[in-house]
Simulated scan of single mutants.
Amino acid sequence: MTANEYRAPSGRPPAQIPWLAYRFTRSDAVAAGYYVLFLLLLSFVPIDIPGLSALIPDPLVAAYVINLAFYAVGGVLALIAARAYVAREARILATRPVLSAALIPIGVILTIIASMVGLIITGEAETAVNQEAVQGLVTQMSPWLVVPLVVVLAPFVEEYIFRHLLIGKLSRYWNTWACCILSVLLFASIHIVGKESLSLPVLMPYLATGAVLVGMYVWAGNNFMLSYGVHAAKNLLSVVIIYAVPPELLQQ
């Protein structure tokens, strides 16, 4: 089976389906604008929501509530903007359920391999502040609270922004390869922006993950529901490992 055959029941790439042409809409502008604005605010501007510290004295829980609210609103806006694509791409995946189900663990394995190769290239491992924050969140909060944020909401919003918009729609106006590179670079950068300086050892795990997600997305004919499935599964695996492995071993 070729990638072309996987793209749509008609055998045509999504961009050739008239009723679902990859054009930017006002809903896309609202969703993307919200994401960029609040991401910059959360990254660079100390936010002290009036009454939040009194209501939630634990800084970790407060950070969780802020991030949950950010991604929940972002997820709703992304779903409104991309609902037609979500429905169609889910139907495409459902036409070949065995292949679709197999591609998700394959994608996760590829991200692990890519990260290992990146580690060999850089020659050193350096944990990003963002990763440390996620580990702290996971180890100190219930999985019933962590999974909806880390596994369900965040990957959906990020796949909508970095794959669906930056590749699927932007490639109508710009070179596809350039869009793919931009997607990988921006995806990696947003995970450390405002938290620490850009360095290859810190960026490499996110670059590797972003490259695999871009590859899966493009191979499947710009199907961001597939890349979302891989992204969500990869995050779920990380959460399970953090819960299963003792903290002292994680530090090593």
Rank of each mutant, 00 (worst) to 15 (best):
M1Y: 10
N4I: 11
Y6W: 14
R7F: 08
G11C: 10
P14D: 13
I17E: 14
I17K: 06
P18A: 10
L20T: 06
A21C: 02
A21P: 07
Y22A: 12
R23E: 11
F24K: 04
T25R: 15
R26L: 14
S27K: 12
S27C: 03
A29N: 02
V30H: 07
A31S: 15
A32E: 05
A32F: 14
Y34F: 15
L37S: 12
F38R: 06
L39I: 00
L40A: 14
L41N: 09
L41D: 08
L42D: 13
F44P: 06
P46T: 06
P46D: 06
I47N: 09
P50L: 10
P50W: 11
G51Y: 01
L52R: 07
S53R: 15
S53C: 04
P57E: 12
P57H: 12
D58T: 11
P59V: 01
P59W: 02
L60N: 09
V61W: 03
A62N: 05
N67I: 05
A69E: 05
A72H: 10
V76I: 15
V76N: 13
L77T: 11
A78Q: 12
I80F: 13
I80K: 09
A81N: 09
A82G: 08
A82M: 03
A84I: 04
Y85M: 04
V86N: 05
A87R: 15
R88P: 11
P97T: 02
L99I: 12
A102S: 13
P105L: 11
I106H: 08
G107S: 11
T122Y: 01
T127P: 00
A128Q: 00
V129W: 01
V129H: 09
N130Q: 00
V134T: 03
T139D: 14
P143T: 13
L145H: 08
L145S: 06
V150Q: 03
V152C: 11
V152I: 15
A154C: 12
P155Q: 02
F156Q: 08
F156W: 07
E158G: 05
E158W: 04
F162W: 06
K169D: 11
N175C: 05
T176Q: 15
W177G: 03
C179Q: 10
L182W: 01
L182H: 00
S183P: 10
V184D: 01
L186E: 00
F187Y: 12
A188Q: 02
S189K: 02
S189M: 09
I192V: 15
V193C: 09
V193L: 15
K195R: 15
V202P: 02
M204D: 03
P205I: 00
Y206E: 01
A211P: 02
M216Q: 13
V218W: 14
N222D: 15
F224R: 07
S227H: 04
G229M: 10
G229R: 06
V230F: 03
V230C: 06
A232E: 02
A232F: 01
N235I: 03
S238F: 04
V239M: 11
V240P: 10
I241C: 11
I242G: 00
P246V: 00
P247F: 04
P247L: 13
L249A: 05
Q252S: 09
